[in-house]
């Protein structure tokens, strides 16, 4: 709230994340997994929707939002993911197709942010570190899946495994430039 400069933060990516969580956590109304699980779902939902609210409605934040460069269109990601979820899913029910859609969408939701970083060239520490930690966080899921594969009954997780792998790959190129700039102690820039 103190840092009102959101230059370089993609509203499109934030809106896609809000959509990801809204469509994935429909099971909050039907299943109870654990208190931790429910609390984290509420945190993800409230934080993603409040970021969108801040970027759209808050006077100071909105002023610094780089609208002209953040031109990626939602439908180019949302529609293919919806079609893919309608074709490839485990069960053809509303909740299951929405869950599958959210998994596919999450894999590509970072794209508008990466495009914006590439266009503006000049990357704030804030946005550079944000993307780095988001990618690092997702890659920890892969370690967790390997751990669970060996310690739990053999579940089929193809949809989440492949989508999570694709998501981590999308960050790989960014990681390369991020780590290089860190190693050489220079400001992070992405090639055009």
């Amino acid at each position: 709230r103190k840092n009102t400069n959101k230059r370089g933060v993609s509203l499109k990516t934030q809106e896609l994340y809000a959509l990801v969580f809204a469509t994935r956590y429909l099971d909050m109304f039907t299943d109870f997994i654990s208190l931790y699980n429910t609390v984290m779902k509420l945190i993800f939902l409230s934080s993603s929707f409040s970021i969108v609210w801040y970027m759209r409605r808050h006077k100071l934040v909105r002023r610094s939002y780089d609208k002209d460069h953040d031109t990626f269109r939602h439908q180019f990601l949302v529609l293919p993911c919806l079609i893919l979820a309608l074709l490839i899913h485990e069960q053809f029910t509303f909740k299951e197709v929405m869950w599958t859609f959210s998994i596919y969408l999450e894999a590509v939701a970072i794209l508008p942010q990466l495009v914006l970083l590439q266009r503006t060239r000049n990357i704030d520490n804030l946005t550079g570190q944000y993307v780095f930690f988001l990618g690092a966080y997702r890659s920890l899921y892969i370690l967790n899946w390997i751990y669970r594969y060996f310690t739990e009954p053999h579940y089929v997780h193809w949809i989440t495994w492949i989508s999570g792998f694709v998501q981590t790959l999308l960050y790989a190129d960014f990681f390369y430039y991020y780590l290089n700039s860190w190693k050489n102690n220079v400001k992070l820039t992405l090639p055009a």
Partner: peptide, 10 residues
């Protein structure tokens, strides 16, 4: 054998 995946991940 393989079981259907539980939806316990965030």
């Amino acid at each position: 054998g393989c079981l259907p995946a539980p939806k316990d991940e965030l």
